[in-house]
Amino acid sequence: MSIQHFRVALIPFFAAFCLPVFAHPETLVKVKDAEDQLGARVGYIELDLNSGKILESFRPEERFPMMSTFKVLLCGAVLSRVDAGQEQLGRRIHYSQNDLVEYSPVTEKHLTDGMTVRELCSAAITMSDNTAANLLLTTIGGPKELTAFLHNMGDHVTRLDRWEPELNEAIPNDERDTTMPAAMATTLRKLLTGELLTLASRQQLIDWMEADKVAGPLLRSALPAGWFIADKSGAGERGSRGIIAALGPDGKPSRIVVIYTTGSQATMDERNRQIAEIGASLIKHW
């Protein structure tokens, strides 16, 4: 067993022997301040990774656009098919120029040779490549099948209805392509620590998230040296922004954090800054 596999296998073990965790309302004060600064709703939840206990939450059962955070769930569904012998990570998928959609920095470079399922998941999570996500959605049967996968996990809230990039439209009061912070946090925890996926697939999923290259201005910008984070960000229309993450000190994750916002007129930089400040408060009061 590799060191990384050992780390993920012992996530519940280490967490069980940690000192009790206590909620700190100071972080919620910052979440509410972010709402004021952005002029928009902000949803927040913080779960203990081992027990699933909610440590703090704000608007945990209000719907927010998922945006690209759905790509972690998508690759979880792909990995479940791999575990069941219905898919192979090494299978190569070929596609054409007509398949390319807006923001496809990886797939646009491989029109000639195609990409493997493993490479597509890596591109979808680490670079948020939209064509990679659409190609992977095709392998599982489309958005409705991802929703069905989530329902089978016990998540009857999260739903995907459309493809990239239309799913980022974020129309107010439109339930399409949305989740709730509580539902997303619980589902992410199941994917990373539950028995739904094999140990190898859980490790692969967290490795992809740990290698995320496009979430630097968010929670990662607030992390002290030595902290662990595996995350996936999302951005959408109407001032929408979000991030889902597993993080913790001492090089291992111990909490799940989900943050979503929508309806702001603020710039992307300002949305990023507010999420980073929430992260800084979380870490300060850990």
Rank of each mutant, 00 (worst) to 15 (best):
M115Y: 03
A200N: 14
P217D: 11
A77M: 15
S221I: 11
D174N: 05
P165Q: 07
D207V: 11
D83N: 06
D177M: 02
W163I: 10
V258M: 05
A124H: 00
A182V: 14
Y103K: 01
K144T: 13
P253K: 09
I275M: 10
V42K: 02
S233V: 00
L111F: 11
W163M: 12
D269K: 10
R159T: 10
K109V: 12
I278H: 03
T139A: 14
K30W: 03
G141D: 08
S233G: 09
S233L: 02
S57C: 07
A222F: 08
A123D: 03
T261P: 06
I278F: 01
E210I: 15
E46W: 04
G236W: 00
P224I: 02
L167V: 14
E35L: 02
A235Y: 00
I140M: 11
L223P: 02
E87S: 06
L28P: 04
R238L: 11
E62M: 09
K53C: 07
E62F: 07
T261M: 15
S122M: 11
D129G: 02
R255W: 03
G236M: 03
L73F: 09
A183V: 14
P143A: 07
E56N: 11
G90H: 14
W227A: 01
T116W: 04
S233F: 01
D231M: 02
R271H: 07
G236L: 03
I171W: 15
M66G: 05
S68H: 01
E26F: 11
F149M: 12
R176W: 07
Q37I: 14
L79K: 03
T139N: 12
L197C: 05
K213I: 10
H24N: 14
E210V: 14
L223Y: 03
N168I: 00
G239M: 03
V42D: 00
T107V: 09
P105M: 06
G90Q: 15
I256S: 02
L167C: 14
T112K: 15
G43S: 06
M67I: 07
E56H: 08
T116F: 05
A215S: 08
A170V: 10
I243T: 05
G85V: 06
L79G: 02
R241P: 05
A183R: 10
R91L: 06
A182Y: 15
R238K: 10
H110M: 11
E270N: 11
G52Q: 07
T262M: 10
I229Y: 02
T186H: 15
A148G: 12
